[in-house]
């Protein structure tokens, strides 16, 4: 399966079954995530036969809405719950992508998820990479899922 299709399928499945939120693809083949403002990014690294990073970039207000739906409780600020929820989204997406890329479970290792949050920041690859970047729409705004794989 094409990796873009797998990212779309996995993201929609995760949101419908775990976050309890309907989402749709707003834009495929987004050129660049650019500078992110008032956002939080969940990151998971891939190492082994495929090396790279999977990231989910979410504006703060959208991340708060996602976490509220995920946890089934009101969340009104960026806190540990939001950071944990966004990290777990990256973790689940990373696991799904690993299943597509790996010949077996041992040839790609996933890092533990981490998050970055701030008023203005940018994710830049350190090497020449193949990039997939897809924008998804929720009822309260959009977010990006990005996969960078070393060529």
């Amino acid at each position: 399966m094409d990796i873009s299709e797998k990212i779309i399928e996995s993201t929609i499945e995760i949101f419908s079954t775990m976050v309890m939120m309907d989402i749709s693809v707003e834009e495929r083949d987004v050129a660049d995530s650019g500078k992110l403002h008032d956002a939080i990014t969940g990151l998971i690294g891939l190492a082994g036969t495929h090396k790279g990073v999977l990231a989910i970039h979410i504006p703060h207000q959208v991340a708060i809405a996602i976490t509220s739906s995920f946890l089934g409780m009101d969340v009104d600020e960026i806190n540990e719950d939001v950071e944990d929820a966004v990290g777990e989204l990256a973790n689940m997406l990373g696991g799904n992508i690993k299943a597509v890329l790996a010949e077996n479970g041992r040839d790609i290792d996933l890092s533990l998820p981490s998050t970055i949050s701030g008023a203005s920041y940018q994710l830049q690859p350190s090497k020449d990479v193949d990039k997939v970047l897809i924008r998804f729409r929720t009822g309260g705004g959009s977010f990006l899922v990005e996969l960078q794989l070393e060529k």
Partner: peptide, 10 residues
């Protein structure tokens, strides 16, 4: 309960 699905890890 995991994102891991590889036959060898499971």
């Amino acid at each position: 309960i995991s994102t891991e699905t590889g036959d060898d890890i499971i």
